[in-house]
Amino acid sequence: MYTLKKSLGQHFLKDENICRDIVGSLPVIQDQQVLEVGPGAGAITKYLLQLPGIHFKAVELDAEKVQYLEKTYPAIKGKLIHQNFLETPAPFEGQFSVIGNFPYNISSQIMFRILEWRDQVPQVVGMFQKEVAQRIAAGHGNKEYGILSVLIQAYYKVEYLFEVHENCFNPPPKVKSAVVRFTRLEQQYDIASERKFFVLVKTAFGQRRKQLRNPLKGLFDKEVLQDEIFTKRAEALTVADFAALSHKMR
């Protein structure tokens, strides 16, 4: 069979209803390109392989799981990329959707990688640690609202779909899980530049308990810092507020 590797954060789904629900959360059309991240032992892979008319690939780092998948699901041969997802170039030309039970120890890094590919990735369905899922989906004014919330919601509509009990996994993780769907925004925010926006958001939330005037004083001229918005804390600002501020940076 196969072994579970704690170093890779492996907790495999065993609840077939949840597996079907995850795959069913990804809208697919004829000839759609779909990438699965971290198929592991194939819990949702087997349902993805049954979807008619899609072009499927999966990225898996663990050589043992690659061998297991190829033996267990012959249809996956030629569709597996044996690499670290964080170092993998975009696996398709053109548009492709991403799905996966994301390894929790690198789930934030996975999201930043997908943000790099956002022009090619219209939809994502992923399972995360519940706290991470809540942060991604949180709105402004919420204590969970932070860097991930703003950076992802700047480009995607986020839907918190459903939670998954620990007993649905082998071995059961010590954390709760949740499935989230992202759909790329048709109307993008007007952002000065990705670099400025990322620096602004990360700096603002770096001292989230302080008024913005303190952490952001190095990014704006003194006159701009007199604006009332800088008396607020980072979590009070909407994504649109951050986008607007990016145009006023030095």
Rank of each mutant, 00 (worst) to 15 (best):
A58S: 11
E159K: 15
F169Q: 00
A43W: 01
D62R: 06
Q153P: 14
K130N: 05
Q123W: 00
E166C: 03
G206H: 02
N142W: 00
Y2T: 15
K77N: 14
V34I: 14
Y2D: 05
F102Y: 04
L51V: 13
L148P: 11
H82Q: 13
F12S: 08
T72A: 05
E228T: 14
A240T: 12
L148Y: 09
Q83A: 15
V179I: 13
E144Y: 05
F197Q: 04
I147R: 14
E93V: 10
T72M: 09
R233I: 09
I81D: 04
F162V: 05
L151M: 13
Q83T: 15
M1F: 10
L4T: 13
D190T: 10
M1D: 13
Q207S: 12
V150R: 05
M1W: 07
Y189F: 15
P91R: 01
I191H: 03
F162C: 08
I147E: 01
P173T: 01
D221G: 09
K232V: 02
Q83M: 12
F230T: 14
A236K: 14
Q187E: 15
Y104S: 03
L245H: 05
Y189K: 09
K79A: 12
A234C: 05
D241N: 14
F162H: 08
M249D: 06
Y68R: 07
Y2K: 07
R113L: 09
D221R: 02
A137L: 07
I147Q: 06
L161R: 02
Q33S: 11
E144Q: 15
Y145V: 13
E159D: 15
L237N: 07
K65E: 08
L115D: 09
R118L: 11
E87S: 11
N167C: 08
E223K: 13
I147T: 14
I76V: 12
V28A: 10
E87I: 06
T88L: 04
K196H: 04
A244S: 14
V37L: 08
S193V: 10
Y73A: 10
D62Q: 03
Q188H: 08
E36M: 03
I22R: 03
P215I: 05
E116F: 02
L8Q: 08
T238K: 03
G78Y: 09
L115N: 03
D227C: 07
H165V: 12
Y2L: 14
V164L: 05
V239S: 09
E87C: 11
M111V: 10
V66D: 04
Q211R: 12
N84K: 08
L61I: 11
V124N: 01
F85I: 11
L151D: 07
Q67Y: 00
A234E: 05
L161T: 01
I106Y: 04
L225E: 07
Q50V: 02
K176A: 04
